[in-house]
């Protein structure tokens, strides 16, 4: 009996979130004296390396194809391997799969898990984020099968040099989607906001879209993604998908930098999973400073270029 982790890939490698999910499962497996098996959604060059993060086994599909019935494949795997816990890392693809599998298997589904699992006896205790990060709910899992979707940055992986044992499987034939895709347009060259380790955001204090080079230059130096506040995207200074907050993207970087953003509660709701927050604002009373770890009271038009120059030479 083991814990199953279903992970995504990107450019022939594991997505970073895959390591988070496997590390979470390994922590739970240790507490429950179980093992971890990973199922890879896609193709990766060296699937065995997931063993470094604590997965004993890794399943890869020899006939990888998104159009195959993945839900059926995983559902069969759950019953054949007598799985009681399935772990996903939060993303649109994973959440959709998790939801569909939970209906098929009549199991319990918990999303937005934001802290390491605990046990009371042999019962798993989880913590979920609610009210857009303004609250948490702690619950015990009583279902025979639990599907857990976890957020980023929950724990530091315990790395080893172990390799996972690879097993090749065949995806099931079954239902295919009736939706027809007419094409995807990507905002080119962007680092994904939701995956970024560092995010640099600008607000109305930036005065206009013509000043965004200040944000972009700093982001480039730091290898960061760029974000903005809602009024900024409402005024079309920046694209809608960059807007961070309660009604926009929720980010969870190691560092969130906010320049010229006041820190309205709706904006904070999108950034409260960040590990460190740096606020640059000319108003010492700006509410954002209360939620920040580092603050600079100053004119962003002076601070941003200076900071960028220092970082470049650092």
């Amino acid at each position: 009996m083991s814990i199953l982790v279903v992970v995504e890939t990107q450019d022939n490698e594991y997505k970073k979130s895959a390591y988070d999910a496997v590390a979470y499962a390994a922590d739970l497996a240790k507490k429950l004296s179980k093992s971890v098996t990973t199922f890879v959604l896609g193709e990766v060059a060296n699937p065995e390396t997931i063993g470094n993060y604590g997965s004993e086994k890794v399943f890869i599909a020899e006939n990888w194809d998104e159009k195959k019935d993945i839900v059926l494949t995983i559902t069969q795997m759950i019953s054949e391997e007598k799985i009681e816990t399935v772990v996903f890392a939060k993303s649109p693809v994973s959440e959709t799969l998790a939801a569909r599998i939970s209906v098929k298997t009549q199991s319990y589904l918990a999303t937005n898990i934001c802290s390491i699992p605990e046990l009371s006896g042999s019962i798993i205790k989880i913590k979920k984020s609610i009210y857009t990060g303004k609250g948490f709910i702690v619950e015990e899992l009583h279902s025979g099968l639990n599907i857990l979707v976890i957020k980023k940055n929950i724990l530091q992986a315990q790395l080893s040099d172990k390799l996972a044992q690879k097993q090749v499987i065949k995806l099931a034939e079954g239902k295919t989607s009736k939706l027809v895709s007419k094409g995807i347009t990507k905002a080119t060259g962007d680092i994904l906001l939701t995956d970024a380790q560092i995010v640099v955001s600008g607000g109305r204090g930036m005065k206009g879209p013509e000043n965004w080079a200040l944000i972009e230059d700093l982001a480039k130096t730091l290898g960061a993604a760029t974000g903005c506040s809602k009024p900024v995207s409402d005024m079309d200074w920046r694209p809608h998908h960059e807007h961070v907050g309660q009604t926009g993207v929720k980010v969870a970087p190691t560092l969130y930098i906010a320049a010229g953003i006041s820190g309205a509660i709706q904006h904070l709701a999108g950034v409260n999973s960040s590990k460190f927050i740096l606020v640059i604002n000319k108003d010492p009373e700006a509410p954002f400073f209360k939620a920040a770890d580092y603050g600079v009271v100053g004119d962003l038009f002076e601070v941003l270029p200076k900071l960028n120059a220092l970082l470049k030479s650092a």
Binding site: S107, Y108, F136, V138, S143
Partner: peptide, 10 residues
């Protein structure tokens, strides 16, 4: 499938 134990604030 679950039992709520408590709510918390950050």
């Amino acid at each position: 499938g679950s039992k709520v134990l408590a709510f918390e604030v950050p």
